[in-house]
């Protein structure tokens, strides 16, 4: 993905901006133009979703796509946000053997990828087991 396309999406990458349908009160992420349940009756509004949820399922990546080779093995998971939507994300700060279905996770701002040594650096949200405060 080139820098301009990534840059247009930073609002929903740096923070979880989705949409909420005012008709059925469902949240969607990433944002979409129409609510699939309400169709023409859709009333979509931008909403900042809480970056917390739980792991629905996960897999361990041993053979990574370009740009992620250095990080293997790593955890990719489908996370269900506490406000409804599901998303695919990398789980960090978690040992492979400690990953589990149902595990609570929270969003964390990390480097996603960089285009070589001289290209732009892409940042965004990944998830991790919640930090213990106190």
């Amino acid at each position: 993905m080139g820098a301009p396309r990534f840059w247009r999406n930073t609002k929903s990458r740096y923070n979880l901006y989705g949409v909420r349908c005012g008709t059925c009160e469902k949240n969607y992420f990433p944002p979409r133009k129409i609510c699939p349940s309400c169709r023409r009756a859709s009333k979509l509004e931008s909403v900042k979703l809480k970056a917390s949820g739980e792991v629905v399922t996960y897999t361990i990546i041993h053979s990574a796509p370009e740009g992620f080779e250095n990080q293997t093995p790593y955890i990719m998971a489908i996370v269900k946000l506490s406000e409804g939507p599901m998303l695919t994300t990398q789980i960090v700060d978690c040992e492979i053997e400690d990953a589990s279905i149902g595990m609570p996770v929270e969003g964390v701002f990390r480097k996603i990828n960089e285009s070589g040594r001289d290209g732009p650096i892409y940042y965004g949200m990944k998830f991790r087991p919640p930090r213990s405060s106190n």
């Binding site: 701002f109 480097k111 940042y123």
Partner: peptide, 12 residues
């Protein structure tokens, strides 16, 4: 870590 730098530290 590999996916951390001054920007990610500053953000958290």
């Amino acid at each position: 870590g590999l996916d951390e730098d001054t920007a990610t530290i500053a953000v958290e």
